[in-house]
Amino acid sequence: MASAPPATPRTNRIGLSVLDYRGLKTTLCAGCGHNAISERIVEAMFEMGVRPERVAKFSGIGCSSKSPAYFLSRSHSFNALHGRMPSVATGALLANRTLIGLGVSGDGDTASIGIGQFVHLMRRNLPIIYIIEDNGVYGLTKGQFSATADLGSTLKTGIVNELLPIDTCALAIQLGATFVGRSFSGDKKQLHAMLQAAIAHRGTVMLDIISPCVTFNDHEGSTKSYAYVKEHDEPLQELSFVPSFEDISVEYAPGTTVDVALHDGSRLRLRKLEEGYDPREKVVAVRRLMEAHAQSEVLTGVLYVDTSAESFVDRLHLPDRPLATLPQEAVRPPRAVLDEVMEALR
């Protein structure tokens, strides 16, 4: 790369190069799955031609929550409190509905300390992309089990997890998230398409991305190691994403694909690898997740999608202009209103 001749970098549809989407140098461990996810976020935002200034990044506390510093430096970012990213994101995205919200959390940040805010975020269908970088352990505090660790998975020290995991995807589907997927930081193609579709979707997108912790949870006996996930990965579909601004038509034999029209006019094409799986059916999705657990499969793909549900900002009847920047005339009622109220109190 260093010896390559200087060339005009490729630009996207708004004239930005991929460098405009980069962040600071990562301080996470070499080989950390989270770094791969950061790369995919940069690519997806670049490919989709999202203006970085329109994105607001949110995170809680943990290794995963540090990662927003490593992509999209031209976007505002809020590294909030442990487990409390959902509320901060909710407030900010209601204050400015024109922002594209991107939340990055971890399995500890979401499934333990943050489970309360997580479930309530899901049930509101707030437009946000909520990513869990899921490695089954607490990294920053050096390797304790999290609530997504599988039954029987072992720590380096030999300690065995004796509790059932929380399946954040099953929870999200049940609670009202409208785009739910599971992927693997090592599956570049699937994750790329899933993130592009996430950007096109309007509503709560919840992506649980298995992202192995090379330092504390990548050993024999762990069910969140690179080797284990590669071996047990059970993709539901082959994903391809067709952006609204590209005119591509790919023919598939009828009945082998599910085509989902997304809010911005993009299309998500799911070539079925599994007979009978339709991600628009909630009950099927949850049942299949339960089966996957029983069979020790890591089920990946778009598990559930609903493009018809009303989002939280729609339900609140917010104006197109951000609440944050409404002028005084719009938010301070005139003198006559105070007079009227005072009169009624006499």
């Binding site: 607001a56 949110f58 809020f78 909030a80 409190l81 409390r84 959902p86 509320s87 901060v88 994101a89 909710t90 407030g91 900010a92 995205l93 209601l94 204050a95 400015n96 922002l99 805010q117 951000p322 609440l323 944050a324 920047t325």
Partner: peptide, 12 residues
Amino acid sequence: IGMVIGAGWAGA
């Protein structure tokens, strides 16, 4: 309060 902090940060 988390929502208030998020909204205040975003200008509401």
